[in-house]
Simulated scan of single mutants.
Amino acid sequence: MAKAQQTVLEINLNALTHNFEYLKSKLNSETKFLAVVKAFAYGSDSVEIAKHLQKLNIDYFAVAYAHEGVALRDAGIIAPILVLHPQVVNFKTIIERCLEPSLYSARILNEFIKVTEAEKQKEYPVHIKFNTGLNRLGFWQSDVDYIVSKLKNTQSVKAKSLFSHLAASEDKNEREFTLNQIKDFKSIATNFESQTDYKPWLHLSNTSGVINYPEAHLDMVRCGIGLYGFGNSAEQDSNLRPIAQLKSIISQIHHIEKGETVGYNRAYTSKGFEKTATIPIGHADGISRQFGQEKGFVFINNQKAPIIGNVCMDMIMVNVTNIDCNEGDEVIIFDGKHKASELAASAKTISYEILTAISQRVKRYIIY
Rank of each mutant, 00 (worst) to 15 (best):
S270I: 13
W140L: 09
T278R: 02
G229P: 07
G133K: 04
K295Q: 01
I81V: 11
I279G: 00
V144P: 04
E10T: 15
S346E: 02
L9H: 03
G259P: 03
V320M: 04
F273N: 12
I58G: 01
S351T: 00
E353Y: 08
L137C: 12
I366Q: 11
L218T: 06
Y60V: 03
I281G: 02
I94L: 14
Q5P: 00
N206F: 05
N180S: 14
E30L: 13
V262M: 05
E170F: 15
I354M: 00
L103Y: 09
I287P: 00
Q54T: 13
S251G: 12
I287H: 00
K271V: 13
V83N: 01
V318K: 02
L179C: 14
I94K: 08
R97K: 13
L82E: 14
E235R: 03
E235N: 05
V148I: 11
K172Y: 15
R364W: 10
H52V: 05
L99R: 01
N57I: 04
Q293D: 03
L72P: 00
Y264L: 15
I253S: 08
S233C: 10
E10P: 12
N212E: 03
A4W: 07
I256Y: 07
E353Q: 08
V298P: 03
Y104D: 14
G69N: 09
G43Q: 07
K172E: 14
A2P: 07
V148A: 02
M220S: 13
D329K: 03
Y65A: 07
V70N: 06
M1G: 02
E257N: 12
A344S: 13
M315A: 12
V221C: 04
E257F: 04
I77R: 09
V8D: 10
G336K: 11
N110C: 12
A340W: 04
F177Q: 06
Q155R: 00
K129A: 15
V70W: 06
A50M: 04
N19C: 04
I211P: 00
T269Q: 13
N265P: 03
L355P: 01
Q6H: 11
T178G: 02
D329Y: 02
D171R: 01
H18D: 11
I49T: 08
N319A: 14
Q290P: 09
K129V: 11
L56C: 01
E176Q: 12
L99F: 05
S187T: 14
R136H: 05
A64C: 08
V311Y: 01
